[in-house]
Nucleic acid binder design. Structure first.
Lengths: 209, 209
DNA sequence: CGGCAATTCAGGTGATCGCCTGATGGGCCG
DNA sequence: CGGCCCATCAGGCGATCACCTGAATTGCCG
């Protein structure tokens, strides 16, 4: 029985290469390639493929969002994350959300093919390189909602006082959260706190402002 | 006459996909694929290909470093940058350095093929998407050597005083440079200064510490 | 129900920052 | 040679930060 596969990746080379690789297999047919998250959700809902290969970084919606939304509309579709820049947090979030397979783009082409096959066969498959990421000293800093809000306010250039105003709370509360964050990240200045947050994947420099 | 091409990319899918695409052409032969910068330099020096396709982000040495080093040993080789995450600064640096072609990975496969063909033919080719990047409001903030040193010190968590000590200058001098930087970046806190520097490509969060 | 964590806020203190003016010397360029 | 920029440093001042203790409220989980 031929498996119908959808590929969602905004990098033409990757989707093209993967499509070529998978098309060479007899029991697999690539029915669609899309280049952004929104389109991926729409197409998965419409075509209900047996398997969807998702990039994480896509315009419109990221891999996690596509996965969560799409599986509501196409519960029988199995999902493989194929990402180039995966952090421990990203992989963990995807696995926690129940994704069926994870592969990194720096793996070999046989690696992803094998993962897709296994996932299509109903198994769960985490690629060796992705598994390595998960084993890493989790370095997971638990940040609460309000702490994150304060973090983003500081990133926008706010002082304690102006951040307080924009969040509608007392400057002292902002101070509390900021101090708490600095303790968690083991830094002693707001400046290096931001850098640490960027490194931890909590802040995206490009998306501020 | 068949062109001998080398591909350097640490993403297996990309190098594999590009190799497949180029191999389909009659007058092109992919003689080698490498996955890191050091290996790229060695192989280019050894094989002296007609054309080398370089990723920017690679372990060992980045695309710019590979280009600068390799052209000394193989002056007749023509170089194409193929990158997924290009900033205005990156592209400009490469073009300034005299690279022959620039293509982004989010382009179509025909785009890169066309660029490689043109570069092999002796022309200079900048892909449409890369050209778009260069047209962007250059947003180039000129930073002096000492300012950059101060910036990195702050990024490492130093205060004015401790940064001064590590640089062997007066705290007041550090203060001057930091103030000057904040003026240039149009921010009013050290924290958002760091974020702005990251956005501008002057700091790499991953490489601090 | 009782502990626990998150969130909120207060008061206080010393260190540091952000920014100002102003000065000195070196290097480059027309 | 006279600007001009860079790097160096000084003094000073008000705002802000970094960090402390302590405390009230809420909601969740066992």
């Amino acid at each position: 029985m031929t498996k119908r596969i959808l590929i969602a990746d905004d990098h033409a080379f990757v989707s093209w290469g993967v499509a070529k690789a998978l098309s060479a297999l007899e029991d697999i047919e690539v029915i669609k390639s899309v280049a952004n998250g929104i389109e991926a959700i729409i197409e998965i809902r419409k075509t209900k493929p047996d398997c969807a290969i998702l990039d994480y970084n896509m315009p419109g919606a990221n891999g996690l969002e596509v996965f969560l939304e799409s599986k509501r509309w196409s519960p029988d579709t199995r999902f493989v994350l194929l990402t180039g820049s995966a952090t421990t947090q990203t992989v963990n979030a995807l696995v926690d959300a129940g994704i069926h397979g994870v592969a990194l783009k720096d793996g070999t082409e046989t690696e992803i093919i094998e993962i897709v096959r296994q996932v299509c066969a109903g198994k769960t498959a985490i690629g060796p390189s992705a598994r390595l990421l998960m084993r890493l000293p989790a370095e997971t800093v638990a940040v609460t909602d309000r702490e994150l809000a304060v973090l983003q306010a500081i990133a926008r250039g706010h002082t304690n006082a102006s951040a307080a105003e924009s969040l509608g709370i007392s400057p002292k509360t902002v101070d509390s959260h900021r101090t708490s964050l600095m303790r968690k990240f083991d830094v002693s200045t707001s400046a290096s706190l931001l850098l640490a947050a960027v490194k931890a994947g909590l802040l995206d420099p490009a998306s501020i402002r």
